[in-house]
């Protein structure tokens, strides 16, 4: 069964049990996205009323910037989860693209727009390599990207000797500090623009629908004329490009391209990469994505983390609190569905 409020999903199989279609309002109320939005609202109200610093312009700015970056990382993973696969190398690709961006600007003297395009193309290319290897070998993307994570990162560290590029044009750092509409970071606005593009892709284009179909049921998609292999490669390339964009955003945030931006082998990105889309309702089995849900998932995690840090909860407990909050969120969502089902509302 699909959830109508998700951004895009495959259609039910013919012959599936007919369920009375709920009203649009009820669809919204029952959606993952609404549940997340409600939780975010509750968290914001609690933190804003109990923590004076939470609503300060600096806090709101850093919050919006973090949401922008974490959402972009989540979107990168979402683009490949749609196929039922995953990409453990998103962090490595992001770091490689960022370092190439820095190299292009600092060493080759490329104009900024050209360096951006080349970095995105590199990300897409590395993603495509993952996709081609997955399709040609038939090995699960977990194994392929586990290997490519080490390869991409290792080659990058070898070539750069782990030295960052901090002689970037001032405009790069200025972009990372730029605010739009009060304290809102321009990085969040960038992410919102990408979200809009992905919504259009998955909802209104043939390619987007092919991606969802290939992820939901590859065999059925193939029988209906979709070139599943090519579609999967495109999904991986899209993941690479989005990871590269996340890397560029982090470069703008730090004002420098640094090899450790995503941690050792790029592993630091894995938690936000999975958390945001999965919380937002993207199915790990593929065939269903939620761009808005990914945005809300990243927002929820960032708000909770920021609030807990401001509450001076020990840094070592933040992760545990985060896990508890996430578990509570999932259980509350399930309880909401159960209650509605008992009342015959779904």
């Amino acid at each position: 069964m699909t959830t109508a409020a998700s951004d895009s999903a495959t259609t039910p199989e013919p012959g599936a049990a007919e369920v009375p279609r709920p009203s649009v309002t009820l669809q919204v109320l029952l959606s993952n996205e609404f549940g997340l939005a409600a939780l975010i609202a509750v968290a914001v109200v609690i933190f804003a009323t109990s923590l004076p610093g939470f609503t300060s312009p600096f806090s709101l700015f850093t919050l919006s910037r973090q949401i922008g970056i974490d959402t972009m990382i989540g979107l990168a993973m979402m683009a490949v989860i749609v196929t039922g696969g995953l990409d453990l190398s998103v962090g490595a690709i992001g770091a490689c693209a960022a370092m190439f961006f820095g190299f292009g600007l600092e060493q080759l003297g490329l104009p900024l727009p050209v360096a951006i395009v080349f970095a995105l193309l590199l990300g897409a290319g590395l993603g495509a390599i993952n996709g081609i290897t997955v399709v040609r070998s038939g090995v699960h993307s977990f194994i392929i990207t586990l290997a490519s994570m080490s390869i991409f990162f290792g080659v990058m560290i070898y070539l750069t000797q782990a030295k960052g590029f901090n002689g970037l044009p001032p405009g790069v750092a200025a972009f990372g500090r730029m605010k739009l509409v009060g304290p809102v970071s321009v990085l969040l606005v960038t992410t919102l623009a990408v979200c809009a593009g992905l919504l259009v892709l998955y909802r209104f284009t043939a390619l987007g629908r092919q991606m969802l179909s290939a992820g939901a049921n590859a065999r059925a998609a193939e029988l209906s004329g979709i070139e599943v292999g090519r579609t999967l490669i495109f999904c991986h390339a899209l993941t690479g490009a989005l990871a590269a964009l996340a890397g560029l955003m982090l470069t703008a945030r730090t004002g420098a391209a640094v090899p450790s931006m995503a941690g050792h082998l790029g592993q630091d990105w894995l938690l936000p990469a999975f958390l945001a889309p999965v919380l937002g309702g993207t199915l790990l089995t593929g065939g269903r994505v939620s761009v808005i849900g990914t945005l809300l998932g990243a927002t929820f995690v960032t708000v909770i983390t920021s609030g807990l840090l401001l509450m001076r909860v020990s840094e070592f407990w933040v992760q545990a609190f985060l896990g508890l909050m996430l578990l509570a969120a999932v259980l509350i969502d399930k309880a909401r569905h159960t209650l509605l089902r008992r009342r015959g509302m779904i």
Partner: peptide
């Protein structure tokens, strides 16, 4: 993690800390 340290420093600044001894998560970043 560089991002974890940056997030913590931003939070400490919001909490009113005004003097920092920092082991850089990254020498440039």
């Amino acid at each position: 993690e560089l991002s974890q340290q940056s997030q913590l420093l931003e939070s400490l600044l919001t909490q009113g800390y005004n003097a920092f001894l920092i082991f850089p998560g990254d020498a440039v970043g």
